[in-house]
């Protein structure tokens, strides 16, 4: 069973907080523990901030996953921005074009259980899934 729960538009910096709160709320409802909730909120923060910084606007959507008895949360970050220049470098720690720490995307991959990145001139789509540990 799949169900698209909600999505949050990212345009202003404070939208990042909104997305984070939505994700935290959902992960709480799905029964994630407090450490996983923090992981999910942090991953959303990274993805939403990347949208805000590099694509100006985009959207974070959430999907509850029921692969019973497993329950999970899928986060999709989508934008129609310029895309990522160097796809081979971006998953290495420390790669940043903005003077940041460059730990965002590799960090999201480590925070979550599944991770997928698609990016071209048309935009960027990051999909990340976390499964709740029963």
């Amino acid at each position: 069973m799949k169900e698209t729960v909600s999505s949050v538009v990212i345009k202003k910096e404070w939208d990042i907080v909104g997305a984070r709160q939505a994700g935290r709320q959902l992960s709480q409802e799905l029964g994630f523990g407090s450490v996983d909730q923090a992981r999910i909120a942090t991953a959303i923060s990274e993805l939403a901030r990347n949208i805000y910084l590099y694509a100006k606007e985009g959207e974070i959507s959430f999907e509850e996953l029921y692969d019973l008895p497993k329950v999970g949360l899928k986060i999709v970050a989508r934008d129609k921005g310029p895309g990522i220049n160097d796809l081979s470098a971006v998953m290495q720690d420390g790669y940043s074009t903005s003077g940041g720490l460059g730990a965002g995307l590799p960090g999201v991959k480590r925070l979550m259980d599944e991770f997928d990145l698609v990016s071209d001139e048309e935009g960027t789509k990051v999909t990340a899934i976390k499964w709740a540990r029963p």
């Binding site: 992981r39 942090t42 730990a103």
Partner: peptide, 12 residues
Amino acid sequence: PEIAQTIVNLGI
């Protein structure tokens, strides 16, 4: 504790 965990996961 949960913040310590995420900081480690982020590789900071």
